[in-house]
Every structure is written in C-alpha cells, then in structure tokens.
Nucleic acid binder design. Structure first.
Lengths: 140, 140
DNA sequence: TTATTTGCAAACGGTTTGCCGATTA
DNA sequence: TAATCGGCAAACCGTTTGCAAATAA
C-alpha cells in the first residue's frame, strides 16, 4: 500500500530522488500511522519528513507536493484557507466536524451521478469536483 | 435588491458606518453591474469601493467582509487558494469553467437532500456544505 | 557533461494588526 | 462620554524563487 505514490511516479515519468521517495512514503503511510482522519498540512509533513532526514528543506517539501499534484498523484485541499493539505488522489469527499476538526472521508455514487448531470445541463463535461460537508455530531 | 446586506446588518445588529454601507452596496450590486458570473476578490472589491470613496483603506475592506462573514451575511470562497472571494450567503453551488474561469451558480435540491443523508449516516447534522464542479465546455 | 534538483535565505502576496485619531451610539 | 471603528504602515505567515552547490542522466 505504501509505495503507491512511488509507483505512480514511475508510471507518470516523475523522477524519483531520495528526498521525493521519503516525502512520498510519509504521505503514503500517513493514514496507517496517524489514523484515518489524518490530513497533515505541509508544515506537518515537513516535521514528519525531518524525522527521517533532517536535511530535507521545507522548500523541497513544497516543490515535491506541487510536483505530485501536477502529475495528478496528489490533490490539494484548502479546508481552512491559508494552509494547504495534500493527499493521495483517490476521489473521495470530506465531512468535517466543525467542532473538533475531525475529517471523515466518504464516497457517494448517487451524488457523483447528479454532479455529472448538473454539468451536462449547463453544457459542460465534468473534469473535477470538490464536495465538503460541515457538520456537528449528534448527541443521542 | 441592492440593500439586502444593509437590511441583514440591521437584523443582526451590525453597526452600519458609512464605509460599511459603501462596501455593502458594492457587493450587493456586483452582479447587476458586472454580470451574473461576477465573483470579485477583495482587491477588486477595494478597487470598486475606491471609486466611490477613495479614502477607504483596504484594511477596512478586509475587516468589513470578515465582519459580514462572521454575521452570516457573506460566505467566503477560495476557488483559487490565495485569493478570497466573498458573496452574499444564499446557498448556491458553483460550476467553474477551468479554461475561462467563468463561474456558473446553481442549486440542486436532489444533491442537497443526499448531502443531508450522508451527514446523517455518519451521525452528523449538516450545518454547511461546499460543492464546486470543475468542467470544460462541450463543443457541439 | 548537461540537465535537473536541492538547500538556503530572501522575496512575495494576501491578510492581519497595533497604534491612535475619528466617528458613532 | 464610552466604545467602536478606520487609516496607515508594519508585521505576519504560508508559499515561491534566485542562486550556487550537489546530484542524476
């Protein structure tokens, strides 16, 4: 599981340097290591990467995530503007707990279908979409 | 139509100064003046406001849109991170043309319903949502 | 070798803030 | 009058970039 990004780099012809491999692994393993709702920002990524190789600079982290994004390997989120988060591009949506900040990932095919229909209706081909739900946990 | 924001300020107990009135009007009238797909960023807002009263500072524009947002009058968007846009909070979604940047507003009750269902499913009350579709215009 | 990548530190750009005089209730 | 607001300029902070050294093809 945790070499997904490296594989995709090879597929897409992205050169794999030592630094990029380390960054790729940190991202790939983030959920396994930190739990399902882990969505580290670039700074946090940099912290984790630093533990493996303290010589990697934050500029390299920024350059690398941007590179991976441009290759379609990662997607960028701005849940809270001013601090970008990147994660593997596997096309799910987010339900965000506005009290705790917890992030739940979900997929819903019905919604997906309707989105396509809306785009069609306006004469567009849907190439991407972003859906974020913000909620408060029910007490029961 | 174009005093909506002022009315809401009164309802919500937001003090209306001269500067705030001008900013409110510029926002209220943006679509009438600049067309349906007008989504000015703060800088552009500042430009338009300056034409009415050149003494209003950009700091005031920032403080005011934030104030209106906190009062629930405006919503903030970060379509392209790094440049916030504010518009009247009337709960529509956006279809964005990735080639031209054109922004189409739409509402779809079916999608809305499904969103609530998803939140429910995870034990949440939906309090807000953000849906952005990115598309390319079909040639036909 | 030739091209690409990295680390460093400085620059950038949108946004916020401290100060203090002006305005408002 | 007491409290809030607004203008200015400086600070802030996430992100990008120019440069020279290091690495890869």
């Amino acid at each position: 599981m945790s070499e997904t990004i490296e594989k995709k780099c090879i597929e897409k012809g992205v050169k794999l340097t030592e630094q990029r491999k380390i960054i790729a692994r940190v991202i790939s393993q983030s959920k396994e290591t930190y739990g399902e709702s882990d969505h580290p920002d670039v700074d946090e990524l940099y912290n984790r990467v630093s533990k493996i190789d303290p010589k990697i600079s934050i500029a390299t982290v920024y350059r690398t995530v941007k590179l991976f994004e441009e290759a379609g390997i990662l997607v960028k989120h701005d849940f809270k503007a001013g601090k970008a988060r990147y994660e593997i591009n596997d096309d799910h949506n987010h339900l965000i707990d506005i009290k705790t900040g917890e992030i739940i990932e979900f997929v819903d095919n019905e919604i997906e279908e309707l989105q396509k229909k809306v785009a069609e209706k306006y004469g567009y081909d849907l190439v991407d979409h972003k859906l974020e739900l913000y909620g408060i946990k029910k007490k029961n």
